[in-house]
Amino acid sequence: MIEIKKNRIENNYSNWQIFGLTFLRVLIGWHFLYEGLIKVFTPNWTAEFYLAGAIGPLAPLFRSLSRSESLLAFVDTLNMWGLVVIGLGLFIGLFSKPLKIAGIILLLLYYFAYPPLVGAGINTHAEGSYWIVNKNLIEIASLCVLFLFPSSHISGIDRFLSYKKSVLSSSR
C-alpha cells in the first residue's frame, strides 16, 4: 500500500477515506487515553471489584485475579498504563499497528469479563440493551478495521517512520 514516488508517500485512499479512518482512529485513541488517565489520576484505583464481580464462563479466571494481591497490582498497572499508551499511540498515529492489537486484546478481556449474555444480569442496570454485541465488541471490530486499513502512515507520526524505513530499504 505504501509507495514512494517522487519522494512522496502514495496510497490508494481518497482524501475522504483518509479523513474517515483517521477520525475513527483518533476517537478510539481519545477513548482509551481518557479511560487510562482517569485511572492513573484516581487515588488507589483498582480493578479488584470489577474483576470480583465478573460473570460468564471466564468469571473464575477474572475472580482469581482479584484475589491475588501481587497479580492484582500487576493487572492494575498493566491496565491503566496499557490504556494510556494505546490511547496515545492511536491518537497521534504512533506504533499504531502493534498498539491496535494490544487494544483488541484489552477489549476482549473487558468483553469476556462481562459478556452480554441474556440472563446473566448484565442488562439489569446497563444504559442500553445488549445481546452478544455490545460497545466493547463494536470497538474491537473498529480496531480490526483500522488494523486492516491503516491510516497512521499517512495521518500520523508513523508517516515519518514508514517513510524513513522505505527510504532506507530503497536506498540500499
Partner: peptide
Amino acid sequence: HGASIFRRDFIKGLAAVPLL
C-alpha cells in the same frame, strides 16, 4: 529525501496533534 517529505507532508503526518 527526508527534508522534502518534511516540507510536503509535515502537516498531514501531524493531523491529530492539534486534537491531542
